[in-house]
């Protein structure tokens, strides 16, 4: 029975270490033995840290919080893949049983010009908040809203909006893109709001503002490699990027008129 297999394996970890922001980092090797295959990937790192603390060494810093795959705080490039090898799964939901005894695992931070490393595997992703600040909202003040059922929304639109809204803002799309583009992230928010009547009023201004901010922050462009879609732990589709491009085009034409 998987849940309590009792199986133990050894792992060769190669982990990126950087003491603080703004300095050079390096890869460091660690051998970890007696790792239960029932552990989550982050529990395996907890185990490593417990060992490092006992040995008087600095533990590896990494971001995480809910450990349920929903908060978007965990990250990590695992053997070159954002969130590791399992499809539509965040790092915190990845388990050691997906790795072989004796396997080498390379663990690096999410890398992008807009995501500076703070320490070890911890990066600053506040640039994603900046994109939302540029326009990822409906300008509704509390108290203004009409009755929730006043405007019916076609079920299909609501479902597509929900698909896009499922983005957890982890930045895997940026980290896995050769151009460090944030288009999947940005387009998910633009799509969600463009698909709903509540978001329509500001749709044109929104797309122009958010795309402009994305460019300013140093995120790259999309060259249709779809690496973002492949690495997304929430299955956000690149059709959202196509929708954003259509919205952008319409808004640009309208602005020029």
């Amino acid at each position: 029975m998987g849940g309590n297999s009792g199986k133990k394996i050894s792992l060769n970890l190669k982990i990126y270490r950087q003491e603080r922001k703004g300095i050079k980092g390096k890869m460091v090797d660690y051998l970890l033995t007696e790792v239960s295959t029932d552990m989550s990937f982050l529990e395996m790192l907890d185990m490593l840290n417990e060992k490092l603390i006992k040995d008087g060494e600095d533990p590896v810093a990494f971001d995480h919080d809910c450990r349920e795959g929903i908060c978007g705080m965990c990250s990590l490039m695992i053997n070159g893949e954002a969130h590791g090898p399992e499809k539509e799964t965040t790092t915190c939901q990845l388990h050691v049983r997906k790795f072989r005894d004796g396997q080498t695992i390379v663990i690096e931070p999410f890398r992008a010009k807009a995501f500076p490393v703070l320490k070890d595997l911890m990066v600053d992703r506040s640039a994603l908040d900046e994109i939302i600040i540029a326009g990822g909202f409906v300008s509704l003040n509390a108290g203004n809203a009409p009755d929730a059922n006043a405007t019916p929304v076609p079920r299909n639109n609501a479902e597509l909006a929900m698909d896009a809204a499922a983005c957890v803002g982890c930045g895997a799309c940026v980290a896995s893109c050769a151009n460090a583009s944030a288009m999947l992230f940005t387009s998910a928010k633009i799509s969600q709001l463009a698909l709903l009547p509540q978001g329509k009023v500001e749709a044109r201004k929104r797309v122009l503002d958010m795309v402009k901010k994305m460019d300013e922050l140093g995120f790259g462009n999309c060259t249709n490699e779809a690496e973002c879609e492949a690495s997304c732990p929430k299955g956000i589709k690149i059709t959202n990027i196509a929708r954003m491009n259509r919205e952008f085009l319409t808004a640009t034409i309208a602005a020029n008129n």
Partner: peptide, 8 residues
């Protein structure tokens, strides 16, 4: 309020 914000 939440529907107005675009909560799907």
């Amino acid at each position: 309020q939440c529907v107005g914000q675009g909560v799907p």
